[in-house]
Design a protein around this nucleic acid. Structure first.
Length: 254
DNA sequence: AATCAGGAAACAC
DNA sequence: GTGTTTCCTGATT
């Protein structure tokens, strides 16, 4: 697991992380009408789905158990390396050398900060997602999981939720999905990366992800595609030479 | 039936 | 003002 290797192309900039752990829309509902409440619940379920998918992805990739208590010190290093990639952190793993999963889990948030003043709280919150056993509840009772993890700090669904809800442009978001074929190639992928040509394979799913990121439960492909069309005259995205359904092209690849 | 193209207006920041 | 989001009419695949 060398740096810059493997499928974890990291995402665009992580700025500071001010310990804001819960997404605003994951807070307990207050006064909402029924349709709003439904939309929220649906969104929570989707966000959690993304969170768990990321945990699952990481476990398979790293060949580690989802339960950090069972990790060896080597597996702890793997997990830290993965997290570095995920969040574009500087080398942080060496600060936790020799710690087993059990050691790691026994550390308090303050102790995490002692290991890494800059990112300790972030790593602590990150680890909490795994430690919580959310994945277990999800696997054993997928129908009753809606609220089970929301006591747990989570900023895990990075692409979908962004880093503390930073505003993002649609074209950037699409790039982020395309940067992570391991997670998203089933719904959007490059046809020709050099020329910036990509295809949306599952329009409904991409729209749902975009809606999650922007907190717009009513987002659909009709509206998302209208936003893409606004890019035509701005020179950001266009239709390729021979227009094909669901295929677009970045006008300034890289 | 789904996607594509824009105009127009509302909306968020 | 910008960047969508929402809605809509009409054409194309």
């Amino acid at each position: 697991l060398g740096p810059k290797s493997g499928p974890w192309n990291h995402l665009s900039g992580l700025q500071s992380f001010p310990g804001e752990h819960l997404f605003p829309y994951l807070s307990p509902p207050t006064a909402l009408d029924q349709s709003e409440a439904d939309g929220l619940e649906q969104m929570q379920t989707m966000v959690l789905g993304e969170v768990l998918k990321d945990v699952d992805t990481a476990c398979k990739l790293l060949n580690i158990s989802p339960d950090p208590l069972g990790w060896s010190s080597l597996q702890v290093q793997k997990w830290l390396l993965w997290t570095e990639h995920m969040y574009c952190l500087p080398r942080v793993s060496m600060l936790f050398q020799g710690l087993s999963g059990q050691d790691l889990c026994s550390l308090s948030e303050a102790q995490f900060r002692q290991h890494s003043a800059q990112f300790g709280d972030m790593l602590y919150a990150h680890l909490d997602v795994w430690r919580s056993g959310t994945w277990k509840k999800y696997i054993t009772s997928p129908s009753t999981h809606t609220y089970c993890s929301f006591s747990v700090p989570s900023f895990f669904a990075d692409v979908v939720c962004g880093y503390h809800n930073q505003p993002i442009h649609l074209w950037q978001f699409l790039r982020e999905l395309l940067l992570r074929p391991h997670n998203y190639s089933h719904c959007i992928r490059w046809l020709n990366k050099e020329m910036g040509i990509f295809k949306i394979e599952d329009s409904a799913h991409v729209a749902r992800l975009w809606g999650m990121r922007k907190n717009r439960p009513a987002m659909n492909y009709d509206k998302l595609s209208r936003s893409i069309r606004q890019y035509y005259k701005k020179g950001i995205i266009r239709k390729p030479e021979e227009s094909r359904r669901l295929v677009y092209q970045f006008m300034h690849p890289i």
